[in-house]
Design a protein around this nucleic acid. Structure first.
Lengths: 333, 333
DNA sequence: CTGAAAGCGCTTACAG
DNA sequence: CTGAAAGCGCTTACAG
């Protein structure tokens, strides 16, 4: 492996000039440039990014901390993050936190040692002290789905409450008159907002009762169980709005197993827009978040922040959209 | 941020001693050790991994190059890779190649510059010249699903041919008497091996005809289309063995849409063991590869290679196992 | 058991 | 437009 020194020698200039040429910082004479180019080529020189990182305090690496890449919501997000990162010349380190504070802490420690340029945080348990800590260390941070709070970091999220309202409106439009809701864990702000959207849409109807809601844990099994309980409780439910797609899949499964026809007897609607909703039969209507766009945006924001092209921290709330599919299609309309 | 120099000063020893203490290389007096510990604590010192990387030629970072993290096969694999990597103190950089040679090349160039310690390659188009190139550069490499060839790298794969035979045996056991096969792209060795396993199992039966096979492209849409063609061609098919789970899902979808009952009229069996096979209704029988184990193993092998605890390169062929589910359950048995 | 010194391969003021 | 030199924060022989 040749070094910048070798190139300098061969080209007959100083290493400083090579460095300037490489980084396009400062002027380089056209002729020298040619000599440098040739030298680089003949030596097959490629700059050492580690040395560069040490000297220049920039590693061109960012980290993506998420709960679990196996959760179907995250692969698409990760893909988007990596796509734009790589477009801008950044590598991305993947970290699975399992939403455990300990793991997050430990990743953050390691990432700090590695002097990565920034962090994208899609986990749920980032504490304010951690944010402050990163901030103190000058590590740019962008969060996904965090409360807007007054944390010193930009946040990308989507319209959870409105999304839930969209879902209910759609179900009502399909003729549903007793709509249950399976909500996610209370710790998750997204789950809570969706629940609120549901409640605000349905209180007022005489059929509404709080017993039409039931907690799931954002998993398929949780959705199945909740659907069973709900159907036992209110056999005349004609729609289930699940707080995320995994639970919607679970609910659908539970209904089919009971021999309940979807959507004729009970309509099912999810939230998130993961691909899984297209593989069931019937396919599941869902309130889709623009997952890829969210990942691309968060990545872009982080890089801007890193490169200092950043305005103040901001919260970006993206639109969601209802994707009508078979699982709620009860009339021609 | 304090440096090793600060620690040395405060502890009243040389930086070399601090370094020895940090790396547990060479002896350090117990009393000095105590002083060092205290100094580190009061300064809240944390070694700079970049400097360490430059001086020590080890970055404690590996890369995982795969086609697309959005493909449901890979998240679980990536999770496993990251789990064991982090257990051993390595960070993992995620790279999506889309199976494009260009992208792979470009990732490899970047990774070389970054002086990562090793690469896990789960993409399909790694050329021999590339392998040789990495080898020349002394970058350890472990591959997934590559032909055993005489490449200078270890390979982790699973029993594709036998897996296919398992599937056919299972279907025959379930009373199926006209089993079709949807195979994956010919470039993929895994797809070819599964096809061969099918062919070896069925030639000999009087019902067999080459027209019972059809290409899909390892996607859901490919599976749907192939299933439609096959059913048109041979309306009396009573089982479809798909070369991967995505195509099995597609086949199931196509059958359900035609009003064909699964498994009563046509049984469906997939290959891979991705979670998706459990979310359909009926759930899909599949020949499961031990995906998590494969990821964990490949990661462990790479790390051993990096740390020089490695025997010669080797090919590890893992067992697959048939997971019988509703989609093939045609008799009590 | 410990220290002085060179070196890893770059970048970045500072002069010129 | 270019070079000499210091510095980034470590590790690693080499002496002692």
């Amino acid at each position: 492996m040749s070094t910048i020194r070798d190139v300098a020698k061969l080209a007959g200039v100083s290493v400083a000039t090579i460095s300037r040429y490489l980084n396009k910082s400062g002027y380089v004479n056209v002729e020298t440039e040619l000599k440098i180019k040739k030298a680089i080529e003949t030596l097959n020189y490629s700059p050492n990014a580690v040395a560069r990182g040490l000297a220049g305090k920039k590693t061109n690496t960012i980290a993506l901390i998420l709960p679990d890449i196996s959760n179907p919501f995250f692969p698409e997000l990760a893909r988007a993050v990596e796509d734009v990162a790589s477009m801008y010349g950044y590598a991305v380190i993947l970290c699975n936190s399992d939403n455990q504070g300990m793991k997050e802490q430990s990743y953050i420690e390691i990432l700090k040692k590695k002097h990565i340029d920034g962090i994208i945080f899609a986990s749920n348990t980032l504490s304010h002290t951690e944010v402050a800590h990163l901030d103190k260390n000058g590590i740019p941070l962008v969060c996904l789905d965090r409360a807007p709070g007054k944390q010193s970091c930009s946040v990308v999220r989507s319209q959870n409450k409105n999304g839930a309202k969209l879902a209910i409106k759609h179900l009502l439009g399909m003729g549903c008159r007793k709509i249950a809701h399976i909500y996610g864990p209370h710790e998750l702000i997204t789950a809570k907002e969706r629940l609120i959207g549901y409640e605000e849409s349905v209180t007022g109807f005489d059929w509404y009762s709080p017993t039409l809601t039931m907690e799931g844990d954002f998993s398929i099994a949780g959705g199945m169980h909740a659907a069973q309980v709900l159907m036992d409780r209110h056999p005349d439910i004609d729609a289930i709005f699940a707080g995320n797609d995994l639970m919607a899949v679970g609910a659908l499964k539970a209904l089919i197993r009971r021999g309940i026809r979807v959507p004729e007897q009970v309509a099912v609607c999810g939230f998130d827009g993961i691909n899984m909703t297209e593989i069931t039969e019937p396919e599941i209507t869902t309130v889709a978040q623009p997952i890829y766009e969210m990942g691309a945006l968060v990545s872009r924001i982080l890089i801007k922040k890193i490169e200092g092209i950043m305005e103040a921290d901001q919260t970006y709330e993206l639109d969601v959209s209802l994707i009508p599919r078979k699982s709620t299609q009860r009339r021609e309309s």
